[in-house]
Structure formats: C-alpha cells, structure tokens
C-alpha cells in the first residue's frame, strides 16, 4: 500500500496541504538538515499523488529539511492509487506513534482528524495499532472537546502551560470565557493540580459572586499580578495563585494570616516552631524542635518552659 520506493522532484510536493499532518513541526530545522547532509536520509518520506502534485503523509520535517539543503530530488515511498484518505491518515498517525510516544497535541490532532471517519467507540477499538496506546471512548470524547479549543490552547498544551485536565475544563466553558483563561495560562507556569485549582477557584468565585470570569479582576477590585512583567513566571504564578485563593476563601485566608502574625509575635526562640493545623478544623497545634544531642534537648526544653509566660502564646492556644 505504501511500499513503492521511487524518486521525485521536491518541487512536485505541495507542502501547504497538511491534511495528514499530526505533529506541529519543529521550529529549528537546521539540526535535521545537517543530519541529512552528514548521515543521509535514514527513512524516506511517504507521499501520495493528488491531482498533478504529491502531498505528504509522513515526513513534513524531512522534506522541509531537504528543501533547506537545496536538494532537488528525494527518494519517497509512494502510496498506491487504491489507498484512500482514511488509510493515509491511519498511516500518518501510526508512523509517528510507533516512532515515539505522541505528545498531547499530536494525540488531539490525530483523534480530531480520525473523528471524520470513525465514532468514538470504533476509534477506541483501533487505538492500540494506530496510536500505540489504549484510548477509551470517554477519553477520546475529552480529546475532541479539547481539540475544539482555539489554536492558542494547542500551543499552551504543547509548551506544558496548560494540562489536559485544565484544557478539558476550559473546553466546556462559554466561548467568550475561553480567551480569558488561555491568557492567564499563557502567563503562568504551574503544575497540573495548581492549574486546575486556579481555574476552579476563579470559576467558583465568579459563580458565587454572579460575575462573568472576564470581568473577574475588575469586579473583585484587584490588581492582576499577571500584568506585572517585572516578576518571573514562577513568582507571578505564586502571587496569582495566592490572590485567587484569598478571593475564594476570604475568611480562611484572613484567619490564617492573623494566626501566623500572632505566632510571629510570640517571638518563640528560632528553633521552636508552632504550627497550626492547615484549616483549623482541629484545635491541635504542633510544637516542634530539632535536637542533635541531650544538651540541645535540655536547652530547648528550658526555652520552652520560659515560653509558658508568653501572653500571646496563651491567647493563641486558648482562643
């Protein structure tokens, strides 16, 4: 089906027809171009004749690299005339997925293209030999939803700024809310769980306050730390996350701050730490210190005994 090896002119290939392109492509082609120059073309691209041209099924980067090297002709595998669109698409996905694990964006692209031909259940059945992994109909459905997001979302998924979990949640939002969140995730760098926490908290605040997420900053009368370009991405994310959390849990945040201020005011000796339980649901505080030997232990116990007279400490523990 794809096993006729022949040589064609590169000028006869229409690189603009990307119907089988699954991978977003590499930005810097020079490494691949150099490799082809020095080592040669390890695996010929696979192409298909359409009208008077050829279109690429697999090997977009290789052809771009060959053009970069000003090469005029290249060996290719030619798809047989009987090969249809669906078979070419399956080949394009499998060629990539059995070379290396597909990235999320490639997986989304593959599933989205295949959805023109197959239902979710059918796609799930053929997933292992095509995608080199199991896919459930539910996950396919999720990927299709994510695939319906605008292009900047794919870029954010590709760079790791947006996890599939967060992208899925965004894909179910109203169309006019989506750019607001994509803009946020383009400016922060966070783990999957923190991304989801931020997203969820903004949505919940908006629902609770009856405001549109787009007017979140304006309605909540807060300065968006994401606009502060003097901060690096990690610090910006930290501040933004804290700010959103404080809006989502105002009383909890205020109480936590107040208790931590009071603990600081106790001026406990540096090595003694007083730690409240995270959400104050339990009354228990833990007091800890580290010791290396008995002398240190004795010293810390004495310091702890001195602390018994500390009024602020009493206030904290008896409140």
């Amino acid at each position: 089906m794809f096993d006729t090896l022949c040589e064609i002119n590169l000028s006869d290939i229409d690189l603009n027809d990307e119907r089988y392109r699954i991978s977003p492509g590499i930005v810097n082609i020079s490494f691949l171009a150099d490799s082809i120059k020095k080592i040669g073309l390890i695996s010929p691209p696979v192409i298909r004749p359409v009208d008077n041209k050829f279109i690429v099924i697999s090997g977009f980067n290789r052809i771009t690299a060959l053009l970069h090297n000003n090469v005029l002709k290249t060996p290719v595998y030619l798809a047989g005339k009987e090969t249809d669109d669906f078979q070419c698409l399956l080949f394009a996905i499998a060629a990539l997925s059995f070379k290396r694990p597909l990235t999320h964006v490639e997986l989304i692209a593959g599933v989205t293209r295949l959805s023109d031909y197959l239902e979710r259940e059918e796609m799930a059945k053929i997933a292992p030999p095509v995608f080199n992994m199991q896919l459930t109909p539910g996950f396919i459905e999720d990927l299709l939803h994510i695939g319906s997001l605008p292009d900047p979302a794919m870029e954010l998924i590709h760079t790791g700024n947006l996890s599939l979990k967060a992208a899925k949640k965004i894909s179910f939002l109203d169309k006019d809310e989506i750019p607001f969140f994509l803009n946020i995730f383009s400016k922060i760098k966070a783990s999957t769980s923190i991304q989801f926490e931020i997203l969820q908290n903004i949505l919940e605040i908006s629902a609770r306050e009856g405001i549109h997420p787009q007017s979140f900053f304006k309605e909540m009368k807060i300065i968006n730390p994401l606009d502060d370009e003097t901060l690096d991405a990690v610090l910006r994310t930290q501040r933004f996350r804290t700010m959103v959390f404080e809006q989502r849990y105002p009383v909890l945040s205020q109480t936590r701050r107040m208790i931590l201020d009071k603990i600081a005011a106790t001026k406990l000796p540096g090595i003694i730490r007083l730690i409240p339980l995270e959400n104050f649901e339990s009354r228990g505080y833990s007091i800890s210190f580290m010791v290396k030997n008995h002398d240190e232990f004795q010293k810390n116990v004495r310091q702890l005994t001195d602390v018994l007279e500390n009024k602020t400490l009493r206030e904290i523990l008896d409140s």
Binding site: I205, A207, R208, V251, L252, N279, F280, E281, S282
Partner: peptide
C-alpha cells in the same frame, strides 16, 4: 447552584465542611 462554592475545607471525617469560625 452555587451551594458548593462556600468556604469549605476538608473535615476530619473527610467530608467538606464550612470553615469552622463560619
């Protein structure tokens, strides 16, 4: 419904509860 969007924290029994001072 916005009923779940209050200040809930995980309780000691793993159920979500309003923050105790509330």
């Amino acid at each position: 419904s916005t009923i779940c969007y209050g200040e809930f924290i995980p309780g000691l029994d793993n159920k979500m509860r309003y923050f105790k001072p509330l």
